[in-house]
Amino acid sequence: MLRNVPIHRSLHRVNTFMGGDREVIMMAGLITIASIAVGQNMISVVFGIIFWFMVLIPARKITKSDPLMRPVFFASLHFKQKYFPPHSHVLANNQLNYKAVMTKSGMKY
């Protein structure tokens, strides 16, 4: 007979805040509060509230579709080449291949 070990959902759930990514929501709240505190008039309050909802609503939708979207997006920024076109060989397109350089005398590796 197999032993059943319960895996609690709280142990592997992504931390969110107000339905959105925690860092995005808290940074937007900090920017909103700072802009309202610096401006100290009704225009800055209105623009702060508009900014808050302009960040909150898309952040909730993005987190609902994929909770790890922000870390994946920032990890993808580290890649230098944005698009990898299909080739029959590694040296087929020397402009996209950073290891091979075309010279007048031929290929230099």
Results as ranks from 00 to 15, higher is better:
Q95V: 12
L30T: 06
M18Y: 03
L77Y: 09
I50K: 00
I57D: 00
I33M: 10
I43D: 05
I36Y: 04
T103C: 07
F47V: 02
F79T: 10
H87D: 02
T32I: 03
S10E: 11
P86C: 02
V55K: 03
R70C: 08
H89W: 06
G48I: 01
L77G: 11
H12V: 12
Q81E: 07
K104S: 13
M42L: 08
V46M: 03
V14K: 06
K108V: 07
F74D: 14
K64S: 04
V14A: 08
A92Q: 15
N93L: 11
S44P: 00
Q81H: 05
I50D: 00
F84T: 06
I31P: 04
S65F: 07
N97I: 01
V38E: 10
K82P: 05
K61H: 12
L56M: 08
K61R: 13
V46R: 00
V14S: 05
R70K: 15
G48A: 07
H12I: 10
I31R: 02
M1K: 14
N41Q: 05
S105L: 07
N4W: 11
M69L: 09
M54T: 05
K64N: 05
R60I: 12
P71K: 00
L56I: 02
T32H: 01
M102S: 11
V38D: 10
T103M: 08
M42V: 12
L91P: 09
T103N: 10
G39R: 01
H8C: 07
H12R: 08
W52G: 03
M69S: 10
K108W: 02
T16Q: 13
V5I: 14
D21I: 02
S65Y: 04
N94A: 11
V38G: 09
M42I: 13
V46W: 00
Y98D: 07
F47P: 00
K82C: 06
E23Y: 06
N93C: 09
N15W: 08
A34I: 04
I31M: 13
F73Q: 14
D21S: 09
A37N: 03
Y98P: 15
I57Q: 00
M42H: 08
R70F: 14
G29P: 03
N94I: 12
K108L: 08
H89G: 06
I25P: 01
D66L: 04
V46I: 09
F51S: 00
T103Q: 10
K99W: 09
V90Q: 12
H89S: 14
G39C: 04
R13F: 05
I31W: 06
M27N: 07
T16Y: 02
V14G: 01
S88Y: 12
I33E: 05
Y109P: 02
S88A: 10
L91F: 08
F74R: 15
L2A: 14
F84P: 02
P58S: 11
M26H: 02
